[in-house]
Design a protein around this nucleic acid. Structure first.
Length: 263
DNA sequence: ATGGTCGACTCTCGA
């Protein structure tokens, strides 16, 4: 048995967040595996040596300006692949989904589309991204294996996952339609390990830049998630939200979430 | 409490 810390962090530009990422990697939550979203970084510009200097290997796929995901890890994954691999992957799909295998542990790092407005084509893309995720789990993974689906999922699944949900019934991250779409993926057999360890209201991972004093007033959202297969969820020991990263200079609007697993 | 900021990149888009 080995204790593994696995973290997720939507950095909202990796280059702008390098000091915060460095602090996080060398701090008290120092993860074995870190899933990043919104790196906004082309592959040829990815800061590989920044991570190798800190003792981390990285698998990544990005685009100019938008999207971009990476799995950073102390040990090199046995396999890493971007996209769904369903024959329909666009450049954007591949910059939103990357999966890595470490022995019998599978980590799927996702940046689910935000969706803009319920009436938009972006929202259709979001729902399709979620249904393709379910198909991926059905096709490539087993409920009896160790799987973690983590990242910026862009859905506040429960009313306690957002401040004032009653004002957000039409929001692309809150509406019934998107919750049903996420439920359709979770019914694969996932356990919400964040809520297993932090069941109380007021636990958020994102505080909007545009809301004045959002962090201090704790007006936020829980949209970054850690969903685990039952065997992995049973081996989860704790989950922590790194609120301190929001107190640093030039913070992301999201913060990091770390899960500790005995695998 | 998504009008209100921030980041990337041309000034407007995406979140």
């Amino acid at each position: 048995m080995e204790k593994m810390k696995i973290a997720t962090f939507n950095v909202n530009s990796l280059k702008a967040r390098l000091p915060i990422v460095e602090r996080f990697l060398s701090g008290e939550d120092s993860p074995d595996i870190l899933c990043l979203q919104e790196t906004k970084c082309r592959d040829e510009e990815f800061p590989v040596s920044f991570f190798s200097d800190l003792g981390y290997s990285c698998a990544f796929r990005g685009m100019k300006s938008y999207n971009g995901v990476a799995v950073v890890s102390r040990t090199k994954p046995d396999e890493a692949v971007s996209g769904f691999g369903d024959g329909e992957d666009s450049e954007q799909d591949r910059a939103r989904l990357i999966r890595a295998r470490f022995g019998d542990l599978n980590v799927v790092c996702a940046y689910v589309p935000q969706g803009k407005e319920v009436s938009s084509a972006d929202f259709q893309y979001k729902k399709r991204f979620l249904s393709r995720s379910r198909a991926l789990f059905d096709r490539d993974y087993s409920q009896s294996g160790k799987l973690l689906w983590t990242g910026d999922i862009n859905v506040a699944m429960l009313d306690i996952d957002v401040t004032h949900p009653e004002n957000k019934r039409d929001h692309v991250c809150v509406c019934e339609e998107v919750r049903e779409a996420l439920a359709g993926v979770l019914s694969w057999g996932f356990v919400d390990v964040f809520r297993k360890h932090l069941p109380q209201p007021g636990e958020f991972t994102f505080w909007d830049y545009r809301v004045k004093g959002a962090l201090e007033r704790n007006i936020g959202w829980r949209i970054d998630h850690m969903f685990a297969s039952p065997p992995l969820a049973e081996r989860s020991e704790s989950v922590r939200v790194a609120r301190g990263l929001r107190a640093m200079d030039r913070p992301s609007d999201h913060t990091a979430v770390t899960g500790v697993f005995e695998v």
